[in-house]
Amino acid sequence: MSLSDDELRGLSALLNEVIPPSADGRMPGAGEIGLAPRIARDLARQEVVLDAVLTGLGTLDRLARGECGAAFGALLAEDRKRILAQVAEAGTDLAPLLAFPAYLAYYEHPKVLVALGLDARPPHPVGYELEPFDQRLLESVRRRARLYREA
């Protein structure tokens, strides 16, 4: 099942609430880096969860249009939070459903890795260099008597 453009915009807005931009501007929000289509694909593997998210997005959109005259994905942050709070109070909190796929997709995204000060690459083939350790750390252990029992 593919999401409409409106639903994807709504999902992006929602993702920005799950992982918002950092106050210092270093870290992007999860909705700002184009994760919505990938997360929609991940959610599609669990139809029940996708249905719940789509139903929730529909509710958010109806409320947004009724109260603010615009789609949920087009609201200002303040209005978005207000609408979300209303829906959560009514018992539909979408953040728990989205947190796992959002965390998964966000923290492997190249822009996020760079923002964290990491190289935007998989571990292989470059890996990391580590120096051999200073064996003087073991001096006190070497001085100890035998710890094992003869048998």
Binding site: V18, A99, Y103, V112
Partner: peptide, 23 residues
């Protein structure tokens, strides 16, 4: 752990919330 595992385990342990305070 890597970033993803850190985030997921931190969420499971209640140390990395969604929304405010996430970063």
């Amino acid at each position: 752990m890597g970033p993803v595992s850190s985030a997921l385990s931190g969420m499971g342990a209640g140390r990395i919330p969604w929304g405010e305070g996430h970063h």
